[in-house]
Structure formats: structure tokens, C-alpha cells
Amino acid sequence: MKIGYLNNASGAFAVPELQIGAEVAVAHLNRNGGVRNRPFELVTCPTDGAPEQSHQCAEKFVCEKVAVVVQGVDTGADAAMPVLSAAAIPLVGHVQFTPGLMNHKNAFFFGAAAVAYGTAALKYYADQEVKTVAWLLPESPATHAFTDTVLVPAAKRFGLSYRSVYYPAGSPDWAGLARAVKTAEASGSIAATEEQCTHIVRALREAGYAGRILAASCTGLPESVGNQSIGVELSSDFWHPTDPLSAPPANQAEIEEYRTAMKAAGHDEPVAGAVMSFADIMTLARVLSTSDVRLNRPCGQ
């Protein structure tokens, strides 16, 4: 069963390590009989975020007769959808990175909806008696709309005072931003890259910020900011392998399965991001094992 894999191997949002997790999952599944007794074959197509590349990858996947395309991170993925949809090849992934995929009928993301993170975080803080929250968001019409239609109404429902503090994505004044949120009991960001998280946490710590800091889903902070990461909170839509005892028993077993598979593939040290792509392939295998998917497609149809 051929599975297309679409991922930014280079460019501004390059995450080549995601492919490692996907490859390890495929090898792990194949050692255990594949899906419905058919082995998986990963057809990779590295991109750099340019829409033209994603479009070409989609054409490649059609000709390779893949059953489904898995997206790691591809910021040009919107351009792949017309070709994939015309060929009735679904795209699955973990997180919605591009606007065209948020509500696309041919896209399915196993992780939490991007718009759910903000509401969940406000609920999390409200449950712990936090009264004022101010998050740092990149300046764009989409983030303003998100503030007005999702965050502010949710905060009101939970009895919180909330405001967004916007920054220009190209040239943020991190120190100034840290000063702007100093009176909030909780700050940080609900959606940010590892690099942005690093700047945000560093700036808030160096400004002496006394509130709680949310750092999106950035797991690399101990490496990037050292002790400044202590106490920083983050959101996740899966149970982290570094904290197995907090997970329910079934998920603890999955964490062990992941670790065993990674070691079998020679990865004795954690590979950042690999767990997410590993989990997505394993979830896809469960979907395919219970679905009636077409396994062979004529090229170009």
C-alpha cells in the first residue's frame, strides 16, 4: 500500500525530522504484517514550502498510485489539493498549517483543530483562577479575526479578561512585547515556532515577568533557553513520551511501542517531532485497517 509523504525538508518551516518518525512507523508496521496483510511503502516528496513544488508532488503521488497522502508540515500544501481531490486521494496530517486546509473536505487532521488551542488554554487558566490573560500573536487579518471571533467570546464565557498583543512577524520587538503584557497573570503564545517560543520566553524572563507563560507546543525550550524554561507551560494534543506515567494505561503502552520502534531503528536519543509523525502513521494504519480504501489507482485519474 503506497502512502505519499509531503513535508518541508527545507525552507523557512523545514522539519526534516518528521520524516524520520514516519519512516520508523512504516518499518514498525511492516515488521508486524502491514495493514490488512499488505506492507506500507512510503513515497516521499520533499518540498521547501513553494506551492509549485507541492503541486508537482501531488502529480507524482497520483502517478505513483498512492492510497493516501500524509502531510508532515508543508506550507505549500494548499496547491496540492486540487490534484489530489481530482484523483480522490485524501490528505491526512496532524496540524492544519495553511488556511486552505482548515475546512477542506478532502483533508483530515488527526490532531486538534488549530482554533481549539486558544479556547482550551483559556479554559485551563480559568479553571485555575487566573483572571487576566494576554497572548502574543503575529499581526495578520487572520489573528485579529481569531481574537474577535474565538478568543474574546471564549474568555468572556469563562469569566476571564483577555487581550491579544500583536507583533509584526518580520521584526518583533520582543522586549517591548514583554513589557506590554507585564500586568497579565498569564501570557506567552498559543501558536508559535520553536524560534518564536525561544524569543518569547527569553524576553518574558529577562523582563522579570511574574505570570504564567504558555509556549505553544514548543518542546525544545530546555535546549534553547535552559533554566528559563522551568515552569513554562505548553499545550499538546497527544500524550508526551517524556511523561508516560501521566498517560492512561493504553497510551502508556503506545509510548513504549514508540520507544521500542525508535530504538529498533537506531534512534537511541529522542528525535524532536518524530513522535508526532510516528503517531500519525500509526493512527492512519488504524483508519485503513477499518476502511474500504481503493488500493490501486490508474495514473492520472
Binding site: Q96, L101, M102, N103, H104, K105, A107, F108, F109, F110, G111, A112, A113, A114, A116, Y117, A120, A121, Y124, S235, S236, D237, F238, W239
Partner: peptide, 8 residues
């Protein structure tokens, strides 16, 4: 298009 709205 997301299959979940659940966050930890």
C-alpha cells in the same frame, strides 16, 4: 478538517 478538539 481536524478530527479532534482535545488539548492537554
Amino acid at each position: 478538517s481536524a478530527c479532534s478538539t482535545a488539548v492537554l
